[in-house]
């Protein structure tokens, strides 16, 4: 607690963290170098690409770990009597609201992913919102209805595809003779200037992140809510 008095004043532009040239360089150089107005996305997907790639791998690993811990196969041995209270019959208001809301939520999630350069957003947020739309479907109907769209076999394929897209961009750079995840070299493939190539490949990387996060969020929910049986949700 006594250390608090040593912290810099709140909102001081000249505090050590703010006056360090790395973060100042990120502010001033991001747009000239990558043509992305949102500095957070640019630093996330480009300058710190390694970081984000392995964060995605961490999320993937967490999803695998939860499947390994909780997943059970075979028929249910005992039904907890408490669960019978939550037997649901279709509710008109909830059904209609979900039918109207879910497409809008998914559209918004795609907008967040695709427009992450120019406004707050990006792969993580868009992926979470897209996964939340499936969770809403599972809450409003039951887990079966949501699993028609995202069956268990498809979850791991989707999550793997996301990481594959991300790492694929990295290895493509490597193949073209540049550093791993150094997107500027990709202008040879895309046919735009090196600066815009960085911007476009950031979009591709964000899409990869969004795939993984969507799949893993729904996988975590469906395992937690069905206690590993993947049969009935809440």
């Amino acid at each position: 607690m006594s250390a608090v008095s040593d912290f810099p004043d709140w909102g001081d532009p000249h505090s050590p963290a703010n006056s360090y040239r790395l973060s100042q360089g990120y502010i001033t150089d991001t747009f000239p170098q990558t043509s992305v107005p949102n500095m957070v996305t640019a630093v996330l997907a480009d300058y710190r690409g390694y970081d984000t790639m392995f964060e995605t791998v961490v999320i993937f690993t967490a999803g695998i770990a939860i499947i390994g811990i909780l997943r059970r196969y075979g028929p249910k041995d005992k039904v907890i009597p408490e669960q019978k209270l939550y037997k649901k019959e279709p509710d008109l208001i909830v059904e209609t609201t979900c039918r109207l809301m879910i497409p809008i939520i998914q559209l918004f999630a795609l907008y967040v992913v695709a427009h992450g350069h120019h406004s707050p957003g990006g792969g993580f947020q868009g992926g979470v919102i897209f996964g939340a739309s499936f969770i809403l479907l599972a809450l409003a109907r039951d887990l079966q209805a949501a699993q028609k769209w995202v069956p268990e076999s498809r979850i791991l394929k989707l999550a793997g595809t996301g990481i594959f897209i991300y790492a694929g961009f990295g290895f493509l750079c490597l193949l073209l003779g540049s550093n791993f995840l150094d997107y500027a070299i990709l202008h040879k493939v895309m046919g735009v200037t090196p600066i815009e190539a960085r911007s476009h490949s950031m979009l591709g990387v964000e899409i990869g992140v969004a795939f993984t996060v969507t799949a893993i969020m729904f996988s975590i929910y469906s395992n937690l809510a069905s206690n590993g049986y993947m049969k009935e949700g809440l």
């Binding site: 707050p120 957003g121 990006g122 993580f124 947020q125 979470v128 919102i129 939340a132 929910y221």
Partner: peptide, 15 residues
């Protein structure tokens, strides 16, 4: 910190 706030609204408050 709009990006952080957005993530927290989706992740922390929602999921």
């Amino acid at each position: 910190a709009v990006d952080v706030a957005f993530t927290e609204a989706a992740v922390g408050a929602g999921v």
